[in-house]
Amino acid sequence: IRVTEDENDEPIEIPSEDDGTVLLSTVTAQFPGACGLRYRNPVSQCMRGVRLVEGILHAPDAGWGNLVYVVN
């Protein structure tokens, strides 16, 4: 998935696990201090948080898609 520190920055590609999840530790390896991800909902244009359970980030209902995710 494509992740950036700010919406206007160049994104970095972060690998997902075989089950489609992303480990928070993978994100923090590239973005120290990150505690989660958010993205701009293409329909509402509002920022939406990615579900985080026990250090594992779960894809939105429509999958990770071609969105750019921003670190929290």
Rank of each mutant, 00 (worst) to 15 (best):
C46I: 15
I1C: 02
L23Q: 06
G20R: 06
L52E: 12
G63M: 00
V27C: 02
E10G: 06
Q45K: 14
V53A: 11
L52S: 09
E10H: 09
D6Q: 09
R48S: 15
R48E: 15
G36P: 01
A62V: 11
H58E: 09
N8V: 07
G49Q: 15
P42T: 07
D18W: 09
I14E: 00
S16E: 08
D61L: 10
V43G: 15
E17C: 10
G63D: 05
D61R: 11
G20P: 00
A59C: 08
N72M: 13
I12D: 00
S16H: 09
N72Q: 11
N41V: 12
G20K: 05
I12Y: 04
D6H: 10
T28K: 14
G49F: 15
R40L: 12
R40Q: 08
S44Q: 07
E7D: 04
P11C: 11
V71W: 03
L37F: 00
Q30P: 04
V68E: 05
A62G: 14
V70P: 03
C35Y: 08
L37K: 00
R38N: 12
V27W: 00
P60Q: 01
A29C: 08
E17W: 04
S25W: 01
E13G: 07
P11L: 02
E5W: 13
Y39Q: 00
R51L: 13
S16F: 12
I12F: 07
S25E: 12
F31H: 03
E54L: 04
C35W: 06
V70K: 08
G20W: 01
V68S: 07
P32M: 04
T28L: 09
T26F: 06
E17R: 14
A59P: 14
N8R: 13
R48Y: 13
G36L: 01
T21S: 09
E10W: 07
R38D: 08
S16Y: 14
R51W: 05
E10A: 09
W64C: 01
G65C: 07
Y39E: 00
I56R: 15
L37Q: 00
W64A: 02
S16I: 15
Y69I: 00
G20Y: 06
T26W: 07
C46E: 15
V71M: 03
C35V: 14
V70D: 03
I1E: 02
N66M: 03
Y69F: 08
G33P: 04
E17Y: 04
F31Q: 01
A29K: 14
L37P: 03
N66Q: 13
C35Q: 13
E54S: 12
L37E: 01
R51G: 06
N41P: 07
G36V: 01
L67T: 14
L23P: 10
L24K: 00
T28N: 07
S16G: 10
T4S: 10
D6L: 08
F31K: 01
F31T: 02
G65Q: 11
R51Q: 11
R40P: 05
T21K: 06
N41F: 04
D6E: 13
Y69P: 05
G33E: 10
V68A: 09
L23W: 05
E13I: 10
E17I: 08
A62H: 15
N66P: 06
V43D: 08
A29E: 13
G63C: 04
